[in-house]
């Protein structure tokens, strides 16, 4: 490595380490979340989906696929990225990272990069599984991948921040369980918010997850609850907020250094 240059070897070492960890825990990191989501597809898509009315002209079974996939992606992105940085803090092996010639940007790139890779794989496997049970079409495949990439990046960055903030295993679970899950269920994963009566419709618009699900669903079916540009703006805003928090953490050493 040349002095002052980019520590590519370091980024690669962490990336490989994180991917190896995922492969070791394949059941937990991939199989279990895919099966859990597939159960929703079976129940709401194949079993009772036919009794539900169509949403925005889309069969109910297909309508819920993007939202449910995102629910799983949100959870796994946060768990993966937070655990990646929390665990070294917990075991003490973080000493090595802190004493290494690696910048904060490189550290984030490596940990979040690995988490994003895992979440993208999870999302694609989940979507592929969905096609076994319900009839899904993707109108804008490239945009779908792009949305997925931005969403996973946003939630992996959020997970990284949570991992640094958390001081015990319970705190790792609080935000995904108590905030992200309710926001997703109430954010239009199972319904179009146009179906809501006022004032709930307006209240729902304050939920950022609405914009993520709406935009992602738009790439599938071409229908959205909110303008697509607003979805993109919310994704970028989440990414920017998390990056700001991370830069601050590394500048001050908050919960990393004494």
């Amino acid at each position: 490595m040349t002095n002052g240059g980019f520590n590519g070897e370091g980024v690669y070492a962490i990336y490989r380490f994180e991917m190896a960890r995922a492969l070791r825990t394949l059941w937990q990191s991939l199989v279990t979340p895919v099966i859990t989501t597939a159960l929703y597809f079976v129940v709401f898509g194949a079993a009772i989906g036919s009794r539900m009315t169509d949403m925005d002209g889309i069969s109910f079974g297909a309508f819920i696929v993007p939202g449910l996939t995102l629910l799983s992606v949100f959870m796994q992105s946060i768990f993966n990225a937070s655990f990646g940085i929390y665990f070294p803090k917990f075991t003490g092996t973080i000493y090595e990272l802190l004493s290494a010639p690696i910048s904060s940007l490189e550290t984030v790139l490596a940990y979040v990069g690995a988490a994003v890779t895992k979440s993208m794989v999870l999302a694609l496997v989940t979507l592929a599984t969905a096609t076994l049970f319900v009839d899904v079409r993707v109108e804008h495949p490239l945009l779908m991948l792009m949305f997925l990439f931005l969403i996973t990046t946003a939630f992996c960055l959020l997970g990284f921040v949570i991992g640094i903030w958390a001081q015990n295993f319970e705190q790792l679970q609080i935000i995904p369980m108590l905030i992200v899950t309710p926001l997703t269920f109430l954010g239009g994963a199972f319904y179009s918010i146009s179906a809501l009566a006022e004032p709930w419709r307006t209240v729902t618009l304050f939920n950022p997850v609405v914009y993520l699900i709406s935009g992602f669903r738009w790439t599938f079916f071409g229908v959205a609850d909110v303008p697509v540009w607003a979805s993109v703006a919310v994704m970028l805003a989440i990414i920017a907020a998390c990056l700001t928090a991370i830069i601050w953490v590394f500048r001050t050493g908050y919960r990393l250094k004494q």
């Binding site: 070897e9 090595e96 990272l97 290494a100």
Partner: peptide
Amino acid sequence: PQELTTDAFESVLSTVTFSRGLFGK
């Protein structure tokens, strides 16, 4: 460091190889 802090599930070879990479070599 003083404390024996290691990644329990890593092999000797992979953890030492990891360290070399982390330090940019």
